[in-house]
Design a protein around this nucleic acid. Sequence first.
DNA 1: TTGCTCGGTCATTGCAGTGC
DNA 2: GCACTGCAATGACCGAGCAA
Length: 533
Amino acid sequence: MGDNVYSLTDYLKESTSNSLSNLNWSASKRRSERQCKRGGTETSTPALTGSLEKGVSGLSIGTSKKNGTEDTHIENTAGPISINVVKPDSLEPDAIIAEYSKHDPTNSALSLSSPVITAQEPLPNCNTDPKSKESKSRDTTLHPLLFKESGLPDNTLLIYKLRNGEVLKQGYKRGTCIICDCCNKEFTPSHFEEHAGMGRRRQPYHNIYTSEGVTLHNIALQLQDRLNPNGFGNANISSFSDYPNVTSGCGKEPSTTNVPIVPLKRTLQERVVETESCYICRDGHTTVGNIDSDTIVFCNQCERPCHIRCYNDGLAKRKAPLEILKEYMQFCFLCCEKCQMLRAHLDEELEKCEEIAFLRRVRSNICWRLLSGTNKSNDVQLYIPQVIDIFRDAFAETAEHSGFFSDMVYTKNVEGEKDFRGMYCAVLTASTHVVSAAILKVRMEQVAELVLIATRSECRRKGYFVLLLNSIEAHLRAWNVNLLMAPVDPEMAPIWSEKLGFTILSDEEKKSMLEVHPLVMFENLLLVQKSLA
DNA sequence: TTGCTCGGTCATTGCAGTGC
DNA sequence: GCACTGCAATGACCGAGCAA
């Protein structure tokens, strides 16, 4: 995989020169046509020469000096979006596809962040014709965001289609252009629209969709919300992928010898029972040593404690305590419908392999998979050892405790010590290789925990981390999980906070959170959280 | 000679009106 | 509601003019 990824460099280096010539060609062609139409003469200088540095004409940001209008950004409160971006210094078209915020499709439309252009005061005797210049104002800062470094990731699938769903052209984003699949030529959005035979529309951003079915216009709105959350410019913040790839449990490398602290709540131990109350009746009464209706059992999904009798009260047909205990031991005791639904979603996801990006050079798809170490199929067992290797490599300083990684990945229940059941591996794969992996524990709608996340060393700094993280967030949203928690190295906390939209919990908040939710925590790490609602 | 400013030209595409 | 269309706002680019 590493070789494949790195080999993409040559491909893009080659194509860079092609892109220049294509860009100039298309620009010259368009200019020529327009000048002929106006009866002018064609200039000898291609209009877009050198525009690769400054951005294609019409895609740059600025304020008109002609009429003195000035863009004024007002504060918005829209939530963050998830965007995957390839490393700016990486030429490879690696893992890239946008995973846009799906949880609130109306967010972009209602966003307050769209630039408001101050209306000019009408001059005395000015033309009040609605077609007059003064009646129009336009936002030229929005759509260019898509083509900036922190904007739409390269290789994002782009489709020009009609409102009825008919696909006219398909391509992918690269740099400031769109590469059409049919001819492999570069187009600006407007050219792409023209290429699709709909040049007369002049609405490229409203008719070019991603594979997610989101228009470029809506993505630009979401980007704007993300980049300008407080109404202030974020010019100093570079690309989202511009940071070390390994985070979560430890940062780039663990600054301490981090040992996972697995809460005892995960096991049925006396002290746990003594300190827990049934979440249904709020009573903590139980009889230690007996298996009866007063026994408190922990749900194998949400891990909330409940009396067997309280659980049975909600059933049409009661179950015997021993039967429930057996279910618990088999990790299939689910306390309510929501937990059953969530487990069904997870089980369903285990069967899937979603293609979320495509590496043209190596003709390999980047796929999202959710794996369970308990699955003994050859397919899963092909990936699991790679996941362990990735974690061992990424968290080298914890090598002496590397057994934990194996236990987590294989979701072992180490009797009397640690219960890693219910953990899943979320991975990105290319061909038969895992490029990025995370250990994920999904609870009910309350919280999911991202225990570890890391990227294969040779694949780092290419955007896989963000791609995986955003895929995780998107799936959690789809499963109605509304909070994602992650233990992070203090050194990496600013990245999680500033670039990934997480909130760093104070020690007090962390303590109370861990009391409520039995998360796997590491020594000396901070706890961050992100609302997915 | 160099660097800066200004104005003209043009490509791009946002916007609004119109028709179906 | 959608497609089509015309208008024109906007920024990039370029050359001319001017000052240092």
